[in-house]
């Protein structure tokens, strides 16, 4: 039975790809309902292996759904919402990879494993507010029993029981403080400024995300990103006097530093696409020290 279900799930996933990430895929709701039903029956019959297999297939579909919805949000310039959903896809993917067999390509998981971190890397978020939490009581999500260092239930965190992922539920906790970090555990904890009336002000620069979204026509097209330094033509820096500090950010003057080189050496994000965008979109965009944009 699970062989047939696997095949059907792989077909559903390929429809995600075929429909360029459209979430209204033919047969999806029926297949998901079928999986839920079969998992319930397997659990009732005590067939843990079958229930686990079905959890894997359900999670495969959920991960792809979250990824596609995140892509849609980013296309609609809802960046923070897209970022949060991408993190949820990443978390489920990490739980799933542990149980999926070597044949990841059948479900497109390897693609997600490569592309989710790439997409996260081009976001401008650098400061995160992360809580310090004392977990005073922990319970098992499967049996509900309180866990202590010597008295634990037989359920292992990360394993699948009764078709559900085992984790620990913090039933009593205390928040000690909030820290400002650059590499957080919880990626959703992005720092935003608030106006006097309480409105969130999002002044992050999403130009890289925008650049990518304008050129991608499907969330499943392979793309790459590489950070390097390139020479920005001196003509974009006519406002900088040779005795001013060099716009590249070094401590030297412009004259001693980059004025001697073919251009001002600045960080550059280079994208590559398996499906080339339209020719008019394939231009290098230069941003100078004033934030002014130009193409060559």
């Amino acid at each position: 039975m699970t062989v047939a279900l696997r095949k059907k799930t792989a077909q559903i996933v390929s429809k995600f790809v075929y429909h360029n990430g459209g979430v209204n895929v033919d047969g999806l709701p029926n297949h998901v309902e079928n999986l839920h039903r079969l998992k319930r029956e397997a659990v009732q019959a005590g067939k843990q292996d079958v229930a686990k297999e079905i959890w894997i297939l359900e999670s495969v579909i959920t991960v792809h759904q979250r990824y596609c919805e995140s892509y849609s949000l980013l296309k609609s310039e809802k960046y923070y919402e897209g970022w949060c959903l991408l993190e949820r896809a990443e978390i489920l993917l990490n739980s799933l990879i542990r149980h999926a067999d070597d044949d990841l390509n059948q479900f497109g998981l390897e693609f997600l494993q490569n592309h989710i971190p790439k997409l996260q890397s081009i976001f401008p978020y650098r400061i995160f507010f992360s809580p310090e939490i004392v977990e005073e009581e922990l319970k098992c999500s499967i049996c509900g029993s309180v866990q202590t260092i010597r008295k634990k239930c037989a359920h292992e965190v990360g394993e699948i029981y009764d078709g559900e992922l085992c984790c620990r539920i913090v039933s009593k906790m205390k928040i000690l403080g909030i820290s400002i970090v650059t590499e957080p555990v919880q990626k959703y904890s992005v720092g935003f400024v608030q106006s006097e009336d309480g409105t969130k002000i999002d002044d992050h620069d999403y130009s890289l995300v925008n650049y990518l979204m304008e050129r991608l026509t499907s969330p499943y097209h392979v793309w790459g990103v590489r950070w390097k330094r390139i020479f920005h033509p001196h003509k974009f820096y006519k406002h900088v006097h040779p005795t001013d500090k060099c716009p590249c950010g070094s401590d030297k003057t412009y004259r001693v530093c980059c004025l001697r080189k073919p251009g001002v050496q600045n960080p550059h994000c280079e994208f590559t696409f398996s499906v080339p965008p339209k020719a008019e979109l394939l231009k290098t965009i230069y941003i100078n020290d004033r934030g002014e944009r130009a193409t060559d």
């Binding site: 004392v134 005073e136 202590t148 010597r150 000690l176 820290s179 970090v181 590499e183 957080p184 555990v185």
Partner: peptide, 18 residues
Amino acid sequence: EACISDKEYTEIALHSDE
């Protein structure tokens, strides 16, 4: 073994990804 009783055992979850 651990130098703590079951009753007193608590864990702390900290901020960064270390």
